[in-house]
């Protein structure tokens, strides 16, 4: 039985700054990292492996240098890593991304039965949280997002029970396998790689699946398979560092001004 973890290599957006004069992004020296949300997905799959004896396959779609991130997954204990890379996959929106990932999972399923697909909640560069549901819908798997605890996996009955966190409440949900679960960062604390595993991962094999291997129709993937298009990009207006009123002489006025600011921003519901 297989657990497939989907991860993405992303530019570390917290390091991206906007040039205040030209309004362009300063990307110099911004490293590519494993999407932080995906580290929880990977950790959870490794815990499932330890608890139920699953095999863990990690897949990632991206440029060839995504290999670095996949090696990190190997160093943490993934059994198999697959890089989905082809220029035909480039420029994909979430719809076209979920296409490639779902097809890769199907392909993996031909070798070994897939029980669970685990995704991170969202990526830090896209912030959409749409790829997980996209994969589940395409594969016809049960879909459980916002999972903050996997309560039980019953391999005989092919069921999984999880806790989902919703606004103001939690729910315990059970569904049949195979299932796609998207996890929150509260679900676990990702482990740190052991050095012998890191050394092993440095030159362990990373399987490459390009579109020759995948054989997908070009109008369903990449830029051509994307339903959305970006028309333009601009830098947001930002206000930073405003000292409001004179809080020491007149706290009432300062408080009033602050409340006004919050109301303007629609952040204070009265």
């Amino acid at each position: 039985m297989l657990v497939v973890t989907c991860i993405k290599q992303v530019p570390d957006t917290t390091q991206v700054k906007v040039d205040p004069i030209t309004g362009t992004l300063i990307r110099e020296g911004v490293p590519f990292i494993i999407n932080p949300f995906d580290t929880y997905a990977l950790e959870e799959s490794l815990r499932l492996k330890e608890k139920y004896g699953f095999h863990v396959a990690v897949i990632s779609m991206g440029p060839p240098n995504t290999e670095v991130t996949l090696r990190k997954a190997l160093s943490l204990g993934a059994d198999e890593v697959i890089l989905l890379s082809d220029r035909a996959f480039g420029g994909a929106d979430t719809l076209a991304t979920s296409m490639v990932l779902a097809e890769a999972i199907k392909k993996l399923g031909q070798k070994e039965e897939v029980a669970i697909v685990i995704c991170g909640r969202q990526t830090i560069d896209g912030d959409t949280a749409q790829v997980g549901p996209g994969i589940a819908t395409r594969l016809g798997y049960s879909q459980l997002t916002l999972v903050d605890r996997i309560e039980n996996v019953d391999l005989k009955a092919k069921k999984i029970r999880v806790r989902r966190r919703l606004e103001g409440r939690h729910e315990i949900v059970e569904t049949t396998l195979p299932a796609m679960i998207a996890v929150l960062r509260e679900i676990n604390r990702p482990r740190y790689p052991k050095v012998p595993m890191r050394l092993f991962a440095q030159d362990a094999p990373v399987t490459l699946w390009n579109n020759k291997v995948m054989g997908l129709r070009e109008d369903t993937i990449g830029l051509k398979g994307s339903a959305t298009q970006v028309r333009k990009i601009f830098s947001p207006q930002r206000e930073r560092g405003e000292i409001i009123g004179d809080g020491s002489k007149n706290p009432q006025v300062a408080a009033r001004l602050l409340i006004d600011r919050l109301k303007e921003k629609n952040l204070l519901s009265l």
């Binding site: 719809l95 749409q130 996209g134 997002t145």
Partner: peptide, 23 residues
């Protein structure tokens, strides 16, 4: 764009094979 809304929208858009923009 709540937890529920994002869960649902992703599935609907994929099924309808249409574009979806989050947040």
């Amino acid at each position: 764009a709540t937890g529920l809304g994002r869960d649902l929208a992703g599935a609907v858009a994929t099924k309808l094979n249409t574009g979806l923009t989050a947040d």
